[in-house]
Amino acid sequence: MGIKVENLLKKGFSLVAGEKGIDREIEGVYICDLLSWVMSHAKAKDAWITIQSHINVIAVALLSEISCVILPENVKLDEDAKAKAEEEGIPVLSFSGTSYEAAIILHEMMK
């Protein structure tokens, strides 16, 4: 089933930045912290789970046409990255559980 970024907000994910993009669709999940790897392997419309929280994450998300960035384990987004996410309309969500737990929720929602 197709879900949107905004649907995650009722499932324990909280919006940190990029509200403009919350109606984006999510069609898959990609988990990785190596930016080059994400660039070449993530698919458009994936939700990207990463512990990287600096400004370059937003550039990679934009270029890879990622639906949203999910920061697990309450990783805090850098201030300049937050500003960039707002500017580009890339939603960044915070989650208290692990990447694995976030992926399970997404999997259940997309069933």
Partner: peptide
């Protein structure tokens, strides 16, 4: 540590 330097730069350029 920032997630760069994975040794994928030039190989990615070639592959794409």
């Amino acid at each position: 540590e920032m997630g760069f330097g994975a040794g994928m730069g030039l190989p990615n350029i070639k592959a794409n």
